[in-house]
Amino acid sequence: MLDHVGILVADWNKAKAFYDAIFGPLGITLLNQVPEEFTGGFKVGGYGKDHPDFWLTESREVGPGRHYAFRAETRGEVDAFYAAAVAAGGKDNGGPGLREHYSANYYAAFVIDPDGNNIEVVCHAPG
């Protein structure tokens, strides 16, 4: 249904370092950075595996409280995401584990990013 989504970030370098670290275990990298002459001088970049699905846009006005969930293939990827996110300065918002109130195979972890967004990685595969 969705082609791509994006968030606003206050500090491009801090946000980029955070997302580089947390996306590494999932095989997601920064694939595109828009030249600043097209963005009014702000940094804009898109992350993904094959094409940019998740965009960061530098902004003076950011709004915390958004929730983004990324799919992992294995529970080990969820664990690795969580460890990388906490090491990169993310705040714990629910460590790796089953969330059976969602479904029997909902294995997820949650962190708060530097701009206050709730970032989740979830694996739906059986244990």
Rank of each mutant, 00 (worst) to 15 (best):
E100Q: 14
V111R: 03
E73T: 03
G94E: 15
L98G: 10
N13R: 09
W55L: 07
A69E: 12
E100M: 05
A125I: 00
D115L: 02
T29S: 15
A21S: 13
W55P: 12
V122M: 01
P25K: 04
P35N: 13
F18W: 05
A17K: 04
D3N: 12
P35C: 03
R99K: 13
H51Y: 14
N13Y: 06
Y107V: 10
R99C: 04
V44F: 03
Y107M: 06
G45V: 01
I112T: 14
P126D: 14
I7A: 04
R71Q: 11
Y82E: 14
V78R: 04
H67P: 00
K91L: 15
N118H: 07
G95E: 14
L2F: 13
L31G: 13
G48C: 08
V62A: 02
E100H: 13
G97Y: 02
D92M: 08
F18T: 04
W55R: 07
F81C: 09
V44G: 00
N117C: 03
D113T: 02
G89K: 03
N13Q: 13
E61L: 01
L2W: 08
A83L: 07
N13V: 09
A104C: 08
V122Y: 02
G40M: 04
G65T: 02
V5K: 00
P25H: 11
R66S: 12
R60H: 12
R71H: 07
F38E: 13
H51C: 08
Q33K: 13
G6D: 07
E77D: 08
F42S: 12
G116N: 08
I22E: 00
H101E: 15
V78W: 05
A15H: 03
R75H: 15
E58W: 00
H4G: 08
P35E: 14
A17G: 11
F54D: 07
N93I: 12
I7P: 05
G76M: 03
G27A: 12
V122C: 01
W12C: 06
D53K: 12
Y107C: 11
V44K: 00
H124S: 07
F54G: 03
G90H: 07
G65K: 00
Y68T: 09
V121F: 06
A85E: 11
Y47W: 11
L8H: 14
D79I: 03
A69N: 09
D53C: 06
W55V: 05
P25C: 09
H124F: 09
F81T: 08
W12K: 01
D53P: 00
F110E: 12
K43M: 07
P35K: 07
S59G: 15
A85F: 10
A17M: 00
G24S: 15
I112F: 12
R71Y: 08
T29M: 05
